[in-house]
Amino acid sequence: MSVISKAIQILDFLVPQGSEREVSITEIGRELGMPVQSVHRILASLCEHGWVTQNPKSKKYKLGLSVMKYGFLMWDSLMLRSVARPFMEELCSKTKETVYLATRENLEGVYIDSIDSPQLLKISEPIGLRLPLFVGASNRAILAYLPADLRERLLAQAQWERIPSLKPLSREAIEQDIEQIRRRGYAITSGEATEGTTGIGAPIFSYEHTVIGSLNCAGPSVRFTAQQVEKISYYVTKYAELVSEELGYRRVHRGHP
């Protein structure tokens, strides 16, 4: 059995059964049929990364905060999809364009749900598509509302010549665009992730006033006339705000979380 398999077994064993559970190395070894030395080494590694914590008095072990953190992240993602879905359907019905729901994972934006346009000529990107937060309207709408210090770090660390965009990007251009996004409440990009396409994205906020995702409409650029951009940006912003409100967010000033 691999070390990873043993670690997973130990984590499963530590899952509370109705109440918080603390167990000793000896008990873990006996119940799982593992040598005490192996259990000790694995627990030491799990403790180092916050998956397990040791009670300094009893010397027994229980699940750590990292398990809770990743559990909450998964719950937030599932909750976001569940809440956003009916609004995505309405948005698609109003605009007749493909609708995407995106969230942030570290330095990237990820599509976690979508509804295809009913039109023959349409954009259809796969669920799970990942792109840097600098690329595309759905991601830039998230980037623009990240905490200023985090956004500054991302901009400072970016290797612009390696950003997978079909159009050249620079820090100066992104900073200018962020100002516009925050002023009008939505992002719009053309031909960055996919040639000949335009996307309009608006941020989604949690009850903690933290940006957690974005709602995005995308389609062939030939259909995104000035009149259509005005119409679609209105609906994208409206439904992103409705999703945010459903999640408990209360907006104070337009364009600012």
Rank of each mutant, 00 (worst) to 15 (best):
Lys6Asn: 13
Ile8Ala: 11
Phe13Tyr: 15
Pro16His: 06
Val23Thr: 11
His40Gly: 04
Arg41Ala: 14
Ile42Lys: 09
Ala44Cys: 01
Leu46Trp: 02
Glu48Thr: 07
Gly50Pro: 01
Thr53Asn: 01
Asn55Met: 02
Lys57Met: 01
Lys59Thr: 05
Tyr61Lys: 05
Lys62Glu: 07
Leu63Val: 01
Lys69Phe: 02
Tyr70Asp: 03
Phe72Ser: 08
Leu73Trp: 09
Met74Cys: 02
Trp75Phe: 14
Asp76Asn: 14
Arg81Asn: 10
Val83Gly: 03
Pro86Lys: 08
Lys96Leu: 11
Leu101Ala: 08
Thr103Tyr: 02
Asn106Glu: 15
Asp113Arg: 10
Asp113Asn: 10
Asp113Trp: 03
Leu120Gly: 00
Leu121Ser: 10
Ile123Tyr: 13
Leu131Asn: 11
Leu131Glu: 08
Ala137Met: 09
Ala137Cys: 09
Asn139Arg: 07
Leu143Lys: 07
Leu143Asn: 05
Ala144Thr: 07
Tyr145Thr: 01
Asp149Thr: 10
Leu150Ser: 06
Gln159Leu: 09
Pro164Ser: 07
Ser165Leu: 07
Lys167Ser: 06
Glu172Ser: 10
Ile174Phe: 09
Glu179Gln: 14
Thr189Cys: 04
Thr194Gly: 00
Thr194Ile: 08
Thr198Asn: 02
Ile200Asn: 02
Ile200Phe: 03
Ala202Cys: 04
Ile204Arg: 02
Thr210Asp: 09
Ile212Asp: 04
Gly213Glu: 00
Ser214His: 03
Ser214Gln: 05
Ser214Trp: 08
Pro220Gly: 05
Ala226Ser: 12
Ala226Gly: 00
Gln227Arg: 14
Val229Phe: 01
Lys231Ser: 05
Ala240Ile: 11
Glu241His: 08
Tyr249Glu: 07
Val252Trp: 08
Gly255His: 08
